[in-house]
Every structure is written in structure tokens, then in C-alpha cells.
């Protein structure tokens, strides 16, 4: 079940990245995705997706990964 939940969250971040990626510079897009997660995702969901960063084959698209990394910093701060 846990793996399913992780996969579901990764799928969601990738979907957000695909929608916020177009027509923007990569840094700006990553900021947008990170802001979105910060603003709309519940604490446990953020924790879970941040934890996925440590897994090698987590399935995060490049832009999604680029957004979750700063999210980890913001949440730690």
C-alpha cells in the first residue's frame, strides 16, 4: 500500500510539473511547482514526496525533482 501511495504522489507532482513547465524558464517553472506544493499539499503528503528524493528510482520527472528539492529545504526551515 505504501508504495502505491508514493507512486500516486510522484504521479501527481509530475502532472503538476507538466502543466506548470510550458512556456517558462526551468528555474521559474521549478519555483512555480514548489510554490504549488507548498500552498496546496497536506503536511503528510509533502513529507512523503520529500522522502522519495532519497530513492534512486523514484520516478520523479526532472522538473518535479527540481521542485521537490527546495520544498525539502523550505519544510526543514
Amino acid at each position: 500500500m505504501t508504495l502505491d501511495q508514493d507512486a500516486q504522489l510522484v504521479r501527481m507532482v509530475n502532472q503538476i510539473a507538466a502543466n506548470l513547465g510550458g512556456g517558462r524558464e526551468p528555474d521559474e517553472a521549478a519555483d512555480g511547482v514548489c510554490d504549488h506544493l507548498e500552498k496546496f499539499w497536506a503536511r503528510p503528503m509533502k513529507r512523503r514526496v520529500i522522502a522519495c528524493l532519497d530513492e534512486a528510482d523514484n520516478g520523479l520527472a526532472p522538473l518535479a525533482r527540481q521542485a521537490v528539492e527546495p520544498l525539502a529545504e523550505r519544510q526543514a526551515g
Binding site: M1, K39, F40, A42
Partner: peptide, 18 residues
């Protein structure tokens, strides 16, 4: 100060057991 779960997230979390 953190958002909570949305309905589909609640369903996923219920099935997961949290």
C-alpha cells in the same frame, strides 16, 4: 498553518491506514 487533506487524498490515506 499547513493545508489538510483533500477528499481523494483522504481516501488514499484511509486505504493506506493513516
Amino acid at each position: 498553518d499547513e493545508p489538510g487533506l483533500r477528499i481523494p487524498n483522504m481516501f488514499d490515506a484511509a486505504i493506506e491506514g493513516s
